[in-house]
């Protein structure tokens, strides 16, 4: 006699839960001559570092022809720059130059979503900060309610960071005044990032996703010059002693 429970489960398969989630895929349309276009891509990536990271990208060959020079290596050239190609359209698998490509499965149900504006420098805020290379320099105090986000490198604040203000950086954060707000460093996974402050009174310190609040900071260090570093998976706040 069969076990009634297992009988039920074999008759009706377990319910699979599924939810919808949509991502905006960017469509890249290379143009001839390809070496120049790749240079342009490099420039754009350098100007707006986070634009392609973690984003699905579709390659549209519509502006190219079967015989465009450099077509054979195009897919590798783009992938080498960290761009994730999830689909190719506008061309044909039967073109000899692209026959050896590793073609991703064709996706269904895409809808055009208009031109995506490529940000020139996504971190540049209205405050008029000075940007040199990957470093963002803010000359004044960051006030409560303001948020500075910089996904390319370090942030240097010459003033203070008020309670209720927030600094988010891919690299390290340096505060020459008093740090009273939140400092979130190493956002892109840079665990060696640090947070420095001439006067450490931070509400929250986060490094690569690990965080500490004011209560976690040694009271003898509060109000002193200090730095926060990541030690394994703990945020450590240490006095800054020259």
């Amino acid at each position: 006699m069969p076990d009634p429970v297992s009988a039920t489960s074999s008759n009706t398969p377990m319910r699979i839960r599924a939810r919808g989630r949509s991502f905006l895929a960017l469509v890249l349309s290379p143009e001839a001559p390809l070496p120049l276009w790749l240079e342009g891509l490099d420039y754009q990536i350098a100007r707006s570092g986070g634009l392609f990271t973690g984003k699905p990208v579709i390659l549209d060959l519509g502006l190219l022809s079967e015989t465009t020079p450099g077509l054979a290596t195009l897919l590798d050239d783009i992938r080498r720059r960290g761009v994730r190609i999830i689909g190719i359209e506008g061309g044909s698998r039967h073109w000899p130059a692209v026959a050896h490509w590793d073609w991703p499965e064709t996706l269904d149900g895409g809808r055009p979503a208009g031109e995506v504006e490529i940000p020139e420098d996504p971190a540049a805020s209205a405050a008029g900060p000075v940007s040199g290379g990957g470093t963002l320099i803010i000359e004044q105090t960051v006030r409560s309610g303001q948020s500075i986000q910089h996904m390319q490198g370090d942030v240097i604040i010459l003033g203070s960071v008020s309670s209720g203000a927030e600094i988010v950086a891919a690299g390290s954060i340096h505060v020459y005044g008093t740090l009273r707000g939140r400092a979130i460093a190493g956002v892109g996974g840079q665990s060696q990032s640090r947070i420095f402050a001439s006067r450490m009174l931070a509400e929250l310190l986060a490094l690569d996703g690990y965080y500490a609040v004011t209560e976690d900071i040694d009271p003898t260090i509060l109000g002193q010059a200090a730095q926060a570093t990541l030690d394994e998976d703990r945020v450590r706040v240490l006095p800054l002693t020259p």
């Binding site: 209205a126 405050a127 006030r143 409560s144 309610g145 008020s162 309670s163 209720g164």
Partner: peptide, 18 residues
Amino acid sequence: VRDSDRIIGLLDSKTQKA
């Protein structure tokens, strides 16, 4: 004091002068 700080931020960004 914190609310005043927020207002100072707005004075520096949301006024005609700014």
